[in-house]
Design a binder for these strands. Structure first.
Length: 132
DNA sequence: ATTCTCACA
DNA sequence: TGTGAGGA
């Protein structure tokens, strides 16, 4: 789950993107105006597109070829974005659960000190962090 | 050589 | 969406 920073890394100028996507510079810039993509900019104000931007543009292209207009593409993109957010929240929930379990394990160690393989922490110091 | 913004005989 | 102007 670390590839995303690579996928979002600003890499290629518009010339490369047009060759990769078969789109004209005009189209690419227009789609940006419509908020479909947000490429980064260099110091000289030149666009730098990421892998995700290119994928996005290819997705947009295929939708347009299927007869979907800008408004339609916007909504399709929003929905896929909402799906991603839903997945993030799901993983977030999982992490929180695992943290709860970790809490329970630590609590067990506090309540049952002296067992083999377990660290013995004094009750008075840490047990106050848990609800008995 | 490339890309950027703006505007439309 | 295409295209040309004028700058960076």
């Amino acid at each position: 789950m670390r590839d995303n920073i690579r996928r979002n890394m600003p890499l290629f100028p518009i010339g490369i993107v047009t060759k990769l996507t078969e789109l004209t510079p005009r189209q690419v810039r227009y789609y940006e105006q419509q908020g479909l993509i947000r490429p980064a900019r260099t110091d000289g104000n030149q666009r730098l597109f990421s892998f995700n931007d290119v994928d996005r543009l290819l997705h947009i292209k295929s939708l347009m070829e299927k007869g979907v207009n800008i408004a339609g593409v916007k909504e399709m993109l929003k929905q896929s974005q909402q799906v991603l957010e839903a997945k993030k929240e799901a993983e977030k929930a999982k992490k929180e659960l695992s943290e709860q379990e970790l809490r329970r394990l630590l609590k067990r160690q506090l309540i049952h000190p002296g067992r083999p393989g377990q660290t013995h922490l004094t009750h008075g110091e840490l047990s106050r962090f848990f609800r008995h």
